[in-house]
């Protein structure tokens, strides 16, 4: 009973999260969010801590080997009994796997070898077996594979990131709609918060790149003037 009741206070204490591309700053910062999450019972707090580790790892995929990524995902398995969590993480793993396969094929690499595991997703074998198909014969289930592939081929990275964030955001909304004041709602909130933070950090990275380009332009102009 107390585990249920704490969510009324906790969820009401969290600010509303607008859609990720409509905010210019985080509605609640990491420290304050962590403070609010201290209301949770120890078992739920442990679950949330594992999710935080997973999300950090998820963001640093490029710095990990496939084996490290799989090992990290396996650590999450004992906590995957929560249906909403299993559905959200399962979707993210499917998305990451399909993106990795599309990027790999875009670079001209062959299909991953079946003897060395490269993904924990249930789609890995399907992708290996249908490597030559434009959508790995998954287009009927995942209609977004074609637009993602087109953006990847066109190297429209910003549009591709936006499409991926949209997919994740809409999926979270779908999985957590119709529930209030429960763990599922909190999980949805945390995943959406992570999307916003990710998007905002991307924006700042884009600003840094743009700033570097402007500096470069100005420097070049000065060089021309100087000559």
């Amino acid at each position: 009973m107390s585990q249920v009741n704490v969510y009324y206070t906790l969820i009401s204490s969290l600010p509303y999260l607008p859609r990720y591309d409509q905010v210019d700053r985080l509605p609640i910062n990491r420290e304050r969010l962590r403070e609010r999450l201290k209301m949770l019972e120890p078992s739920d707090a442990e679950l949330i801590a594992q999710i935080a580790i997973f999300l950090c790892w998820d963001r640093q995929q490029t710095a990990c080997t496939d084996a490290e990524m799989i090992a990290q995902y396996e650590k999450m398995r004992p906590f995957m009994t929560q249906p909403a969590l299993a559905a959200i993480l399962g979707f993210r793993m499917d998305l990451i796997t399909i993106l990795a396969a599309l990027r790999r094929r875009h670079l001209g690499w062959g299909a991953p070898q079946g003897d060395s595991p490269w993904s924990v997703s249930r789609l890995a074998r399907q992708i290996e077996n249908n490597w030559e198909d434009p959508t790995f014969k998954l287009g009927a289930v995942y209609s977004w594979i074609t637009p993602v592939r087109d953006l990847l081929v066109a190297e429209e990275t910003v549009a591709l990131d936006r499409l991926i964030f949209n997919l994740i955001w809409d999926r979270i909304n779908h999985l957590t709609s119709g529930v209030d004041f429960c763990l599922e709602k909190l999980l949805g909130y945390l995943f959406k918060w992570d999307v916003i933070e990710n998007w905002l950090s991307y924006e700042s990275r884009a600003a840094e790149i743009r700033f570097a380009e402007l500096v470069q332009e100005v420097t070049c102009e000065h060089k021309i003037d100087f000559k």
Binding site: N5, Y8, T9, I11, S13, L14
Partner: peptide, 14 residues
């Protein structure tokens, strides 16, 4: 009242 009161307490923080 308990449920609504708990939600009210959470909203006071925000």
């Amino acid at each position: 009242c308990a449920r609504a009161g708990q939600a009210a307490c959470g909203a006071l923080l925000e």
